[in-house]
């Protein structure tokens, strides 16, 4: 049986999202498709699957991403679906542990990619937001007050970036001691 759950995760909380998806899998609900704030599950044996998600370097249909997805599939992972550049995978628990990165250096490199992705959206929203808010004030046009939404996204995104930058700093400190 399938069931859909709507849930919002801020993009920088991808760890929490993954944890939640694995808690669902542990309860016997395995992810089968993803959309905007939308997760579809099907019944499985409790703990049958482990779930991982990853921000790809390119859009999922780009040949480079396809090559990567094929590589993961060859290691026993199953590609569930994508939402924008985020790809979701699952693997049977009996086939061993499922993590996409196993050392500090590759985790830091990946996290840096995620930070750039969020920073780009944040900066774009800030620029559009500031621009439109000024226009709104000068022209007192209601439409341009939408700029406040961009600005809000920009501020919220900045908060997210700071959170991830702190996380990266902690990982780098750790990396000075351990691999």
């Amino acid at each position: 049986m399938r069931q859909t759950i709507h849930k919002l995760f801020w993009v920088w909380n991808f760890d929490k999202e993954e944890k939640w998806l694995n808690e669902m899998a542990a309860k016997g609900l395995s992810l089968v498709s993803v959309g905007f704030c939308k997760y579809e599950f099907e019944d499985s044996m409790p703990g049958e699957y482990k779930v991982c998600l990853q921000l790809l370097d390119k859009m999922p249909h780009h040949p480079e991403s396809q090559k990567y997805i094929e590589f993961l599939e060859a290691t026993g992972a199953e590609h569930i679906g994508n939402f924008t550049r985020w790809a979701y995978f699952r693997k049977k628990s009996k086939d061993g542990e499922f993590e996409l990165f196993s050392d500090n250096a590759s985790r830091i490199k990946y996290l840096s990619g995620v930070i750039s992705f969020i920073a780009l959206i944040t900066v774009a929203n800030c620029i559009v937001g500031i621009n439109n808010v000024f226009l709104a004030i000068n022209l007192s046009s209601l439409v341009n007050y939408l700029g406040f939404i961009n600005l809000a996204i920009g501020i919220w995104g900045t908060f997210g970036c700071i959170k991830l930058l702190r996380k990266r700093k902690r990982m780098k400190q750790e990396g000075q001691l351990f691999e």
């Binding site: 290691t75 026993g76 196993s102 590759s106």
Partner: peptide, 22 residues
């Protein structure tokens, strides 16, 4: 690729488990 993952795990007696992304 998958052969490398299995071989590394075997060589290191299960200590080093390479993740596919890494």
């Amino acid at each position: 690729g998958y052969g490398i993952m299995q071989n590394v795990e075997q060589l290191s007696n299960g200590r080093v488990k390479l993740a596919a992304g890494t």
